[in-house]
Amino acid sequence: MELVINGVKQELAAKTIEEVIAHFGLTGKPVVVEADGAVLTQEQWTATEVREGMKIELVHFVGGG
């Protein structure tokens, strides 16, 4: 399935957000997910199914002032 992750088109076999996170080796890391403009809590990851063309943002805390 084609997804747009952090602005880049990617072909992934993942069915849920949880699987997208696992695909990138981010399981257990402090990641925040936005899917098609909706911010998801971690509890929603397994229940949220991905769909063709979904825009997913994977963000985290970085150094800043």
């Binding site: 952090n6 990138f24 925040v32 985290h60 805390f61 970085v62 150094g63």
Partner: peptide, 19 residues
């Protein structure tokens, strides 16, 4: 402590978060 929020670099995810 202050932080910023940025996209994760998906090419180098082992480059872990500041936290």
């Amino acid at each position: 402590l202050t932080f910023a929020i940025r996209r994760i670099n998906l090419e180098a995810t082992e480059d872990d978060s500041i936290l």
